[in-house]
Amino acid sequence: MPADTPIVAQKEPYPIEVEAGKSYFWCACGRSSKQPFCDGSHKETSFTPVKYTAEVSKTVWFCGCKASAKAPLCDGTHKTL
């Protein structure tokens, strides 16, 4: 697969409990072994992780298909893949 094509990590979002004030780095390439977060696997690609800083502690749904228009959060795009 070309290094500029994201890999679909899974065709559903990842529900993650986030902590207010904490930053998270979402994997945009789909190659990370620590989905939905970055582990540095993008280094051979044109992708960079997307920083998400939680405003409040709650469950958020991080995109698993890597095609969301609202990345890093899920927008339902996985339902059309």
Rank of each mutant, 00 (worst) to 15 (best):
P6C: 04
P2V: 13
C27A: 08
Q10H: 03
A54N: 09
C29E: 09
A67V: 09
G30E: 02
A71Y: 04
L81G: 13
S23M: 01
I16D: 10
K58P: 00
K58T: 12
C74V: 02
L73D: 02
Q35H: 15
P13D: 08
Q10E: 09
S57R: 04
A71D: 07
A67H: 13
C74N: 05
P15H: 01
T48F: 05
D4R: 14
P13Y: 11
I16T: 10
A67Q: 15
F47S: 10
G76V: 07
K43I: 06
Q35I: 04
K58G: 00
P72K: 04
T5H: 12
G64A: 03
K51I: 00
T59C: 02
Y24M: 08
P36S: 12
V8S: 08
C27T: 04
W26E: 04
Y52Q: 00
K70N: 15
A67S: 15
R31K: 14
K70P: 01
T48L: 13
K58Y: 01
E44H: 15
C74F: 02
Y52G: 03
C74K: 09
E55D: 10
S32N: 06
S33R: 13
F62V: 04
H42R: 06
S68N: 13
K43P: 01
H78N: 07
W61Q: 08
L73Y: 05
S33W: 09
H78G: 03
V56W: 00
P13I: 02
V56A: 12
E44F: 10
V18T: 09
S41N: 03
K66E: 05
C29R: 06
W26R: 02
T77R: 15
A3C: 10
A9P: 03
L81A: 11
